[in-house]
Amino acid sequence: MTAQTEPVISLILNGESRSFPGPLTVERLLAQLPLPAGRVAVLVNGEVAPAAEHAARPVTEGDVIDLISMVGGG
């Protein structure tokens, strides 16, 4: 599926190994995912990546990305 010249970036997304064509930023990654309506918060290697930085924040080989939203809770 990916053109041969594009680098493939492997990362851990919500606990699962996934690969995406690079180069990758948080914003580009989010654009490729079937996300629910509403905002999604992002952790890169366990640290909060503020929305204002998503466009510039690179995602590189081996990064651990967690996408967080609201669920029912008490």
């Binding site: 919500n14 606990g15 995912l33 309506a37 999604v40 996408l67 967080i68």
Partner: peptide, 19 residues
Amino acid sequence: ITVALRRVDLSGKTPNLLD
């Protein structure tokens, strides 16, 4: 009302609380 924060379900099978 209280809510919790958890990983997004990327399979799209879980109903969205916000709906």
